[in-house]
């Protein structure tokens, strides 16, 4: 018998092992929900699966009586748009400043202390300032995401840039490269897959900031909706929304991972 650390599950047992906890949670939830509903059919805390399905059907496929929108989809579109703009901007700024800081000592000397300082400010504490400065419109929400994750991205990419082996940088110089060429032919291509990895890590916080901002000031969006229906204890909407958000997060992560593996085989081949 092999040692435990050397025993790997096959494809079937991997799926079975992976799904088991989910199944278990579903079973426990259903049991608990049924028990509570038997005691009090109007209980709102643990709605039954069919109640949640009804609620989601209403949100997704019936136009809202008040606005005529299909609420789930407008919420999803609004949230994803904010997320995309916020994370996209942060990635761009993180890339530019991360590379500049990592590759050019003079740049680093000037900017690193500032970025370290900014990264220590809790972004949520900035939220009121953002609302005052940018109003209650889209900009404030996007800015919260941006401010929340950009310092992390800059610092992470700066570190990754500094980790590029000295030998390779010397090599580029002996092949006649100037500073700009070292950046476009060595640093930038090597940092791109690391940017994707860093964005994947920061997406968790990005969602946090998005939902927080929407909860406080918005008229649509996934975070707005769950905090709105909270007033009516509408768990039949909140729970499926949370699952939906989780699913979106999972799909985004998967797409980024797959893209990176396809686009940068040398990166994944080496770390595998």
């Amino acid at each position: 018998m092999k040692k435990l650390i050397n025993r790997h599950p096959g494809i079937v047992s991997r799926w079975a092992l992976g799904l088991l906890p989910f199944l278990l949670i579903a079973v426990i939830y259903t049991a608990a929900s049924t028990a509570r509903l038997e005691e009090n059919p109007n209980d709102k805390l643990l709605p039954s699966a069919s109640a949640m399905a009804d609620a989601m059907h209403r949100m997704a496929f019936e136009p809202s009586k008040r606005t005529g929108d299909y609420v789930l989809w407008t919420d999803t579109a609004a949230s994803l748009q904010r997320l995309a703009i916020g994370v996209g901007l942060a990635a761009l700024v993180g890339l530019v400043f991360g590379i500049a800081n990592g590759a050019i000592p003079l740049f680093r000397a000037g900017l690193s202390p500032l970025i370290t300082g900014i990264s220590l400010v809790p972004p949520m504490a900035m939220l009121p300032i953002l609302f005052i400065a940018f109003g209650l419109e889209e900009l404030a929400k996007v800015m919260l995401i941006f401010i929340g994750i950009t310092p992390f991205l800059i610092r992470d990419l700066q570190q990754r840039t500094e980790e590029i082996p000295e030998e390779q940088i010397i090599k580029m110089q002996t092949l006649g490269a100037n500073t700009w060429q070292i950046i476009v032919r060595l640093v930038w291509p090597q940092i791109m897959p690391r940017l994707i990895a860093a964005v994947r890590l920061s997406l968790g916080s990005a969602w946090l900031f998005l939902i927080a901002a929407e909860a406080i000031a918005a008229t649509d969006g996934l975070g707005y909706r769950i905090f709105l229906v909270r007033r009516y204890l509408a768990m039949d909407v909140i729970l499926p929304y949370v699952v939906w958000i989780t699913l979106l997060a999972f799909v985004i992560d998967l797409v980024l991972r797959r893209y990176s593996a396809w686009r940068y085989p040398w990166f994944h081949g080496r770390t595998a």
Partner: peptide, 12 residues
């Protein structure tokens, strides 16, 4: 020009 003791080609 240099060829290092450790590999100095560009991995990407």
């Amino acid at each position: 020009g240099i060829v290092f003791q450790r590999y100095s080609v560009l991995p990407h």
